[in-house]
Nucleic acid binder design. Structure first.
Lengths: 198, 198
DNA sequence: GTCTATATTTCGATAGAC
DNA sequence: GTCTATCGAAATATAGAC
């Protein structure tokens, strides 16, 4: 696990490229980030990147897959639930797991949040491999289910965005003297108020 | 108040250009939207746009100012409050006003949400006229105030993002048979659970 | 105030040497 | 596996006629 500021050992890996791409996509956005910049930060040339990734879009896809691996389990569990009663009952526990995942992978979730449009346009090209598997897309389909009362669906939407909003605002917002663990415990308290124990 | 699909009366106004820009920025994103597309939808040429806006970035600035006018009043009221006690007491009422504003201007808020990075990079060029006045930026500074307990600040963050998330997911998520008024009333219920009346 | 035409820049992508 | 060099496309922006 070597940091990505100055390369010396010749030979670069896909994962190292994705690490730097994630950094830059979060700093400047996917569209505004050029392959030249990524190559520069890695200390290689543009052409070197093309050995590992055929197209710029494949960087997006690579990062998408990282995120996908994280959220898949939770969403599969969600889809396995049958009726509204089960869903609402399981929701607080699912959110709790989700908080852990977001905490451990804030860069990746920030990337997804800030580049949602770019990610969505992946689906146009790569058959629908992207679109159908996209986490946000699956979640949106779930929220469209008219069998669940609207009040519940709105509340679920709010709880997820509250969670993301509370956690994504990190030290740079709350101040450097707070820890993410503190923030997370407050977020959990907020979630509890939205879904009080019966 | 004329719609923006086919121009005939010669002469085009800044506001009409901004209307179309807002549409396209929301559909395709700021970066991916070219001046050629904006001009085409307006039925004029690229060069015509340059008569009204010197640079593409100025379209961003124009839309930013529209949003700024909306949120300024609320944020001024917020800044006028002295201590934590007053702020927390006033918070539910401020959120209620905010809900009305978001409901009445969803396109504009969606634009801000989906193009936050592009908007933020405005501050680099236009002195800090943009950065210092940016709504999100002012709100972030507010959230950094260590005089307010972290628990309150996290809760305020969550409540705002919950509100935005719940309202921004509109008919296209919840289904075409729901009205935004229904959604809004459920969002207000969520907010009440976060700030129960004493 | 809008047009045609063009200048300028930047980017994604490829070819071929090493 | 990385390099130099370059191509072609597309975008922003400008010049000048009407």
């Amino acid at each position: 696990m070597e940091q990505s500021t100055a390369r010396r050992s010749r030979g670069i890996t896909r994962e190292q490229i994705l690490d730097v791409a994630l950094e830059l996509f979060n700093e400047r956005g996917y569209d505004k980030t050029s392959l030249r910049e990524i190559a520069e930060r890695l200390g290689v040339t543009k052409a070197a990147l093309y050995y590992h990734f055929e197209r710029k879009e494949d960087l997006l896809l690579g990062l998408h897959l990282r995120l996908h691996a994280l959220g898949r389990e939770i969403l599969d569990d969600l889809d396995a639930l049958e009726d509204e009663r089960q869903i609402v009952a399981a929701w607080p526990k699912l959110l709790d797991r989700f908080i852990d995942e977001v905490l451990a992978n804030r860069d990746l979730f920030r990337f997804h949040q800030r580049n949602e449009r770019a990610l969505h346009s992946l689906g146009d090209n790569e058959q629908h491999a992207a679109e159908n598997d996209d986490l946000a897309e699956r979640f949106r389909r779930f929220l469209g289910n008219p069998a669940i009362p609207l009040a519940d669906r709105v509340r679920m939407t709010c709880s997820v965005t509250a969670l993301l909003g509370g956690l994504m605002a990190g030290e740079e917002v709350y101040g450097d003297d707070v820890t993410m663990d503190e923030v997370a415990s407050h977020v959990r308290a907020v979630i509890r108020d939205l879904y009080p124990p019966a």
